Simulated scan of single mutants.
Amino acid sequence: MQDHIERQLQEPISLHDLAVAAGYSPWHSARIFKELTGKTPFEYIRALRLSRAAARLRNGGARIIDVALDFVFESHEGFTRAFSRQFGMSPLNYARNKPPLKMFMPPGARDYYLTLQTGDTEMATNDMNMDTVFVQVVERPARKLLLKRGKKATHYFEYCEEVGCDVWETLSGIKDALYEPMGMWLPENLRPADTSAYAQGVEVPLDYTGQVPEGFDIVELPPCKMMVFQGQPYDDEKFEQAIGDLWAVMKRYNPETYGFRWADEDAPRFQLAPEGYRGYIEGRPVRELNKK
């Protein structure tokens, strides 16, 4: 049913169509769909169409009425009402200002069943529960990265064993920082020989002339785009589950759906300190598909 919706998203879709695709009765198809996705077929199709429409408006160059008709809305007015209910703003306001939106991320029923076959029921349940995340693409200017490297660390806990856990305090004291400190996975072009894939650092202005703490490096980063994922709020003691949930979403996320491709060579992939009140946040560099 999800595959049929994806193929026919810009065409009318009825419950009968989904029942034929599933091979069940309409009633049974609708019940299974709601059980596995948390939405009725109508709610799911509407949320997915509106998110794809928002992506089209964000990329620019499309008239609102054309986007509305392409995604099977009968009128400009009907599309505007539905868009405003979904995102809290009109499509015109969004097209002009392009603020971050909480896009709908379809849960992967196929992945869920494949995971069940491995016997990992807890992972499958977590994966299906996280059906929406906050996704936005942000611009990063040319800047410098102040960081402390490890030797072999590939993740946070290995890094703490190698380098210690006091790096964050030093990074938080950098007065000219552009953003908050971050853990990061460095691309090959930013890794000297015999240094770790994972490091911690903070970004500073390109003209930064402040102190570089002992044992730290500073490198220049070119302008880039980052696709930032933000999970749902969680209890602080469940931070590992929150990270795993978001990683599951990112693993199956296809940026090409929204006009981008992964560009890991452009910048480090980063994670911010897990804070339950805001949800786990991670970013990965992207480029627009129509640009080299």
Score class of each variant (00 low, 15 high):
250 M>I: 14
171 L>E: 01
130 M>F: 07
250 M>Y: 00
178 L>W: 05
28 H>W: 07
121 T>F: 12
45 I>M: 06
259 G>I: 07
160 C>Q: 11
287 R>G: 07
146 L>Y: 02
119 G>A: 14
33 F>Y: 06
274 P>I: 08
175 K>V: 15
214 E>R: 11
81 R>Y: 02
168 W>P: 00
99 P>Q: 09
82 A>Y: 01
126 N>S: 10
196 S>Y: 05
195 T>E: 10
292 K>P: 05
268 P>V: 09
275 E>Y: 05
202 V>W: 02
110 R>I: 13
2 Q>Y: 02
2 Q>I: 12
23 G>S: 10
205 P>H: 05
52 R>G: 00
25 S>G: 09
272 L>G: 02
176 D>F: 04
210 G>E: 03
55 A>N: 03
54 A>G: 00
148 K>E: 04
110 R>A: 13
44 Y>I: 02
49 R>S: 02
75 S>E: 06
174 I>H: 03
96 R>W: 06
68 A>E: 04
221 L>H: 03
290 N>F: 12
210 G>R: 07
259 G>T: 07
194 D>N: 12
97 N>D: 12
111 D>E: 14
42 F>A: 13
64 I>Y: 03
266 D>Q: 11
134 F>I: 08
181 P>C: 12
226 M>D: 08
132 T>R: 10
58 R>C: 00
113 Y>G: 05
91 P>G: 06
204 V>A: 05
240 E>Q: 12
123 M>P: 00
275 E>Q: 14
112 Y>F: 15
6 E>M: 11
272 L>N: 03
218 I>F: 03
71 F>W: 03
230 Q>K: 15
233 P>M: 15
183 G>R: 04
9 L>H: 00
221 L>P: 01
227 M>I: 08
16 H>T: 10
282 E>Q: 13
108 G>I: 00
254 N>R: 10
54 A>V: 00
247 W>D: 11
218 I>Y: 02
